[in-house]
Amino acid sequence: MALTIPGWADVVGRMDAMRVDPQRRIGPSEVQAVTAMTERLSDLDDEFGGRYARPMAAAFLVNTVAPYLRADASSETRKSMTAAAALLCYLTGWMAVDEGAHGRAQQYYVKSLELAGAGNDPTTYCHVLRGMSVQAADLGHGTPAVRLANAAADASPESSPRMRAFITGQQAHAYALAGERTNALNSLREAERAVNQAESRLGTFGGFSSATLAYATAQVRHALGDTEGSIASLNDHFALRDSTDMQRTKLVFSSLLAERQLEVGHLEAACATWNSVLDEYPGIHSGRMDRQVAKIPSLLSPYRTNSVARETSEHARELIAK
């Protein structure tokens, strides 16, 4: 996680020199098409996983969006297309993280930062930095996660309650992983205040709700050593979820819940949670979920004499082998 992150001042308004194709001209309709396709790809990623959706996103980037970026256009259209490409590039990086292709994800993320600057889109720039912090945190790299989350906060172009929650919730998790307890708890309280003030409507990217806050709280508590509290917060998360929440994250967070239930000795509860995951797992094409499921047999191996644990472990093994 030591890669160099281009600062906003270094990328704003700047585009790599490229030859304009005079045979092709684009307008607002092409920008609208890229935006609409990004939303569809995001829906597919949410429902089926990054390994399913990323090849489509990558192909669309290369075959359609890259030629649009080289096409003749008005200055306003060029700016809008570049910003739309930045968002798609960010989403493709997010999918790569789900696959477990972390180096590739970082390449997409850095390119998205450059495109966001070229398109003068500070909101996407901020979201990408926050996404990079999430990636670092999920890999257990607390200090880089703090650096990236703080960079996102510094770059944030707005101070709406939901944006503040979106950023400070991630700062809290990053601080907790880095062992900065006071900063973690302060950031979590700020995220809670911001959620309480936030408007009800969620955006396609960056929606932060009470359910998201409960998950952030669970992550902070676990990183600070409070596994029981983390379990309670994850249960709060599931109670607060609604139809807009991702199917994949439901399974990922349920897997974390099961691991933490086992960690505190609640074997049968952990197996029940894992069984609910395994019932839905075949429909998800996610490298992260593959890794979560692959851990189940080894985590349950000390309990092989327990019939419930043995059945859950065997079910996981069968699905892994398919």
Rank of each mutant, 00 (worst) to 15 (best):
T249P: 00
L224G: 04
T312I: 06
A194H: 02
M163I: 08
A59T: 05
H127G: 11
A176F: 06
Y68G: 06
A118C: 03
T123G: 12
R241E: 10
V11A: 00
F166V: 04
A194S: 11
T244R: 10
A174E: 06
V110I: 13
D290K: 14
A136I: 07
A152D: 06
I167T: 01
L69M: 11
G142W: 10
L256W: 13
A198H: 04
A118M: 05
A145E: 04
R70Q: 14
W94F: 13
S133V: 12
L267I: 01
A2C: 01
P28C: 01
L113Y: 07
N186S: 14
T4E: 14
G49L: 07
T82G: 01
P22Q: 00
T182N: 15
S75C: 09
L240Y: 02
P28L: 12
L139G: 07
R248S: 08
H222V: 09
R304S: 14
Q107K: 10
A149K: 11
L41T: 04
T273H: 04
L267V: 02
T64C: 03
Y52L: 09
V20C: 04
A211C: 09
L300C: 02
P28Y: 02
A232T: 10
N306A: 07
T227I: 07
S133R: 08
N63C: 04
A101E: 02
Y109V: 09
R221K: 14
P6N: 02
V146G: 09
H285Y: 13
R310T: 10
A151H: 03
F208M: 12
Y109L: 02
K79V: 04
A86V: 01
G131Q: 15
G287F: 06
D138M: 12
Q23M: 08
R310C: 12
R40T: 06
N150T: 15
T305R: 11
G229D: 07
K295A: 08
S200Y: 10
R288K: 05
P297N: 05
N235P: 02
R317E: 11
D121Y: 03
